[in-house]
């Protein structure tokens, strides 16, 4: 997957083509927005001169398929096939909008915005083609990443139209398709990320490393609200790779509970250290005890 940084680098070059950005919730063209001093750069949809569409997905995808669903909203209105939309992820910075996965909200939140962005771009390509052919927009049709001249059957690809389209104003109220016109939304389509997820190549949180990274394994009370009374970390600290044992809190909405973190130079050492760590916990909430529960499992 392309990182956002690579994308920004590419986007800042002249090869940028056509780039719609989100600036404080408003869709702008990148080159207009770049002049804004307080511009918060959020590349949103870019189309390069090869017609490649790149989309920065503001909705985290934990497997629920938001990257496919979000790409479908754009592809539908932009009139490109779904496999032409390359999805990369937002870095999670505040100016890129809230990063929320939950409540089945990805499509609901993006439904209007992404379709409008796709439709706006499409109308700009239509306009650019119509100007080139010196005819009205209504005599042109956008289809499969191209604009077709309905009179002469001539075609211009989005890639070819990028340079001209980016000089045009962004339509205020692009016209959205109605349900009967949908060819992607509501249809069964294949996900683009399946291959990574069946070959072991997908990167999950647990696979990410940074230089000099330490890992923590947290020992919780066996009862849900048991308080830490004392602990013995002598054996834990002897484990190869364990760096420290740190009392910490398990924070929950409206409350927080005692816990102990074993910090080590590898995840395995942290887990092994946790096994060697002894905590003495109070009896608070002892109607539910995980130690007893696990004993019953074996």
């Amino acid at each position: 997957m392309t990182s956002r940084r690579d994308f920004l680098k590419a986007a800042s070059k002249a090869s940028l083509g056509f780039c719609l950005v989100l600036d404080h919730g408003k869709i702008l063209l990148a080159q207009d927005a770049l002049g804004n001093s307080d511009f918060s750069f959020n590349p949103f949809i870019s189309i390069n001169t090869n017609g490649q569409v790149t989309f920065v997905n503001p909705n985290p995808d934990l497997g629920q398929g938001s990257s496919q669903a979000s790409a479908a909203l754009i592809a539908e209105e932009l009139e490109v096939s779904l496999d032409k939309v390359k999805v990369i992820f937002s870095s999670g910075q505040a100016n890129e909008g809230a990063q929320i996965a939950g409540g089945s909200g990805a499509v609901r939140r993006s439904w209007e915005q992404l379709r409008q962005a796709g439709a706006a771009a499409k109308e700009m390509f239509l306009r650019a083609a119509a100007e080139t052919w010196e005819m009205s927009d209504s005599q042109c049709k956008a289809q499969n990443g191209e604009v077709i001249n309905l009179n002469t059957k001539a075609r211009l690809s989005y890639g070819e139209l990028v340079e001209k389209a980016r000089t045009l104003p962004i339509p205020e109220k692009p016209k959205l398709k109605n349900k009967e016109q949908f060819t992607i939304i509501g249809k069964a389509t294949k996900r683009s990320d399946v291959l990574e997820r069946i070959t072991g190549k997908m990167q999950y949180g647990i696979d990410v490393t940074v230089p000099d990274m330490l890992y923590a394994a947290v020992l919780h009370s066996p009862t849900i609200i048991g308080k830490l009374q004392s602990y013995d970390d002598k054996e834990a600290l002897k484990v190869n790779g364990v760096v420290a044992v740190v009392p910490c809190k398990r924070t929950m909405p409206y409350s927080s509970f005692d816990a102990l973190a074993v910090v080590a130079d590898s995840y395995w050492s942290a887990l092994k250290g946790r096994r060697a760590l002894k905590g003495v916990w109070g009896k608070e909430g002892d109607h539910l005890d995980t130690d007893i529960y696990f004993k019953k499992l074996y």
Binding site: G63, Q64, R191, D193, R197, I198
Partner: peptide
């Protein structure tokens, strides 16, 4: 076969 049936959700 996993690809044809689009098996994974998160894939973990």
């Amino acid at each position: 076969a996993w690809q044809a049936h689009q098996v994974p959700q998160c894939g973990y």
